[in-house]
């Protein structure tokens, strides 16, 4: 059994796909998500082998969602879309396959064969992904997209990953690692990423650690381990 997740904004579409997948007896449908943010969260927590991903979804589409997933836990992706204007792009993204809704049985069987063959081979999924430009943050009932250039720093603690801007702090489902890999934010501490252009000044301590102050006056720790690379990066 492969662990699978379905992400689609239409409940009936998820139902239908779940029905078809379960009938094959090949998949354990670990969860369903109604949007990309839920999708990222589910991938991070459930580490599925494969996701069935709708492309056109509110706020963030399927391609954008992929750009927010850590490379090491990237699952195989089968795009499921109602209209094939995206099909070509789906292939460019090197998705494992794509399906058109409503899904034809014949076509579905071909996809299943492909999935089984690929997953058996054990090779890692490799996708060209679009660059990360915005970080989705969860508010009470909406998603706020924060532009990377507005971010001062990002820190992680036991409660989650916090995106800090001049205006405030927001919780995101993306991991520090994903953001570090997919953006220009700089790792200055095990738990901190900083936006170099938001740095106002640096105080170097005697014990060779340092403190950064951002433009809005917030303070960030720089650990000894990262201080040298930071200095190099800044040309100090």
């Amino acid at each position: 059994m492969y662990r699978a997740i379905i992400i689609d904004d239409e409940p009936y579409a998820r139902d239908e796909l779940r029905f078809m997948l379960e009938k094959t007896g090949l998949f354990d449908i670990a969860a369903e998500g109604a949007n990309a943010v839920e999708g990222v969260r589910l991938v991070n927590s459930l580490r599925p082998d494969i996701i069935f991903l709708d492309i056109s979804m509110p706020v963030l589409n399927g391609f954008e969602m992929l750009s927010m997933i850590e490379k090491s836990i990237m699952p195989y992706v089968v795009f499921v879309t109602a209209y094939d204007e995206y099909a070509l792009k789906a292939f460019e993204e090197k998705a494992l396959d794509y399906l058109l809704k409503p899904i034809e049985d014949e076509r579905f069987r071909m996809t299943l064969d492909k999935i089984v063959a690929t997953l058996k081979s054990g090779e890692k999924p490799e996708y060209n992904r679009m660059p990360l430009t915005k970080i989705p943050c969860t508010l009470k009932n909406t998603i706020k997209l924060i532009d990377l250039k507005d971010v001062e720093y990002i820190r992680s603690d036991i409660t989650g990953v916090h995106v800090v801007t001049a205006d405030g702090e927001y919780l995101t489902d993306l991991t520090l690692k994903v953001i570090e890999c997919r953006s220009d934010l700089f790792r200055c501490h095990r738990q901190y990423l900083v936006n170099i252009s938001a740095i106002d000044r640096i105080n170097i301590n005697e014990n060779l650690s340092a403190r950064l102050f951002t433009r809005s006056g917030r303070e960030i720790q720089v650990s000894r381990r990262y201080l040298k690379t930071l200095k190099d990066h800044l040309g100090l």
Partner: peptide, 18 residues
């Protein structure tokens, strides 16, 4: 909108069962 058409057909296909 083709999206509308195909998504609707898909929805009907699903609702048909339940």
């Amino acid at each position: 909108n083709p999206h509308f058409l195909f998504n609707t057909l898909n929805t009907i296909g699903s609702v048909l069962r339940t």
